[in-house]
C-alpha cells in the first residue's frame, strides 16, 4: 500500500453523540459510522487482510499466520468489531503515516508497528477502546483457539479438547506429601 488518504474529521461532540447512539463505544469510532475512510479499504480485501495480519502478528508473534485462523475474528459478525475492521485497518495505516512516515503499516518492522499501536493506545479514549478491543480479540482468538476446539494453542500448551491420558496425568504420585494439616474432617468449615 502506498500514498496518502483523506480522512473526514468530525468534532469530539459529534463523536460522543454517535458513540452513545451506537452503544458500543469500544468498537464504534464515529468516523466509521460516517464511512469516512479511504476507498481502498472499503474494496480491497487483500489489503485489509495484510494490514490486519501485521497487526495480529504484532500483538501475538505468529498470530498473523493465516494457518492460525486468527484473522477470522476481525470479520466474525458475532463481535461488533466486524463492522469496523476496515476502518481499523485504515487507521493503522493513517497512524503509521505520522508515527513512522509511511502508511505501509504491514511493511514496518515489529518495533515500529509496536510504536504505532502504542501511540493509538495513548491517544483519545475512543482510539484506546478500539485498539484495546482489537488486542483482546486477537489474544482470545489466538490463545483460546476459538475456531478449532481440537487444536487449542500449542504456544502455551493448551491442547483444546481434553486428551484423556489417565487419571494419574492430572495429579502427583504420593499426593499426601503436599497436603497441609486439615482443619476439618469433612471439608466443610464449621
Amino acid at each position: 500500500m502506498s500514498g496518502s488518504h483523506e480522512y473526514q474529521a468530525i468534532s469530539r461532540r459529534q463523536m460522543v453523540g454517535l458513540l452513545a447512539a451506537a452503544g458500543l463505544a469500544g468498537c464504534t469510532p464515529a468516523r466509521i459510522l460516517l464511512q469516512a475512510y479511504p476507498e481502498p479499504f472499503k474494496q480491497d480485501d487483500d489489503l485489509n487482510e495484510r494490514i490486519l495480519g501485521a497487526f495480529a502478528d504484532t500483538i501475538v508473534p505468529g498470530a498473523g499466520d493465516p494457518d492460525r485462523n486468527v484473522l477470522r475474528v476481525y470479520r466474525d459478525e458475532f463481535y461488533p468489531f466486524a463492522k469496523y475492521h476496515r476502518y481499523f485497518a485504515s487507521d493503522l495505516c493513517r497512524r503509521a503515516g505520522y508515527v513512522c512516515d509511511t502508511e505501509d503499516f504491514d511493511r514496518l518492522p515489529r518495533k515500529e508497528r509496536e510504536r504505532v499501536i502504542a501511540e493509538a493506545l495513548s491517544s483519545d479514549a475512543t482510539s484506546r477502546k478500539l485498539y484495546s478491543g482489537a488486542i483482546m480479540l486477537t489474544q482470545v482468538a489466538f490463545y483460546a483457539g476459538i475456531y478449532d476446539d481440537r487444536r487449542g494453542c500449542s504456544d502455551i500448551g493448551f491442547e483444546g479438547e481434553y486428551q484423556f491420558r489417565g487419571l494419574d496425568a492430572f495429579t502427583y504420585p504420593n499426593p499426601e506429601r503436599f497436603l497441609a494439616t486439615p482443619m476439618t474432617a469433612s471439608g466443610h468449615p464449621l
Binding site: 500483538i59 505468529g62 509496536e114 488486542i135 486477537t138 490463545y143 504456544d155 502455551i156 500448551g157 493448551f158
Partner: peptide, 17 residues
C-alpha cells in the same frame, strides 16, 4: 513495554499453564 500484548506477553502466557 507493552506487557499485556506483544512478545513479552507471549512469554508470560507460555507460563500460564
Amino acid at each position: 513495554d507493552h506487557q499485556w500484548w506483544g512478545e513479552s506477553n507471549l512469554s508470560l502466557m507460555k507460563q500460564l499453564r
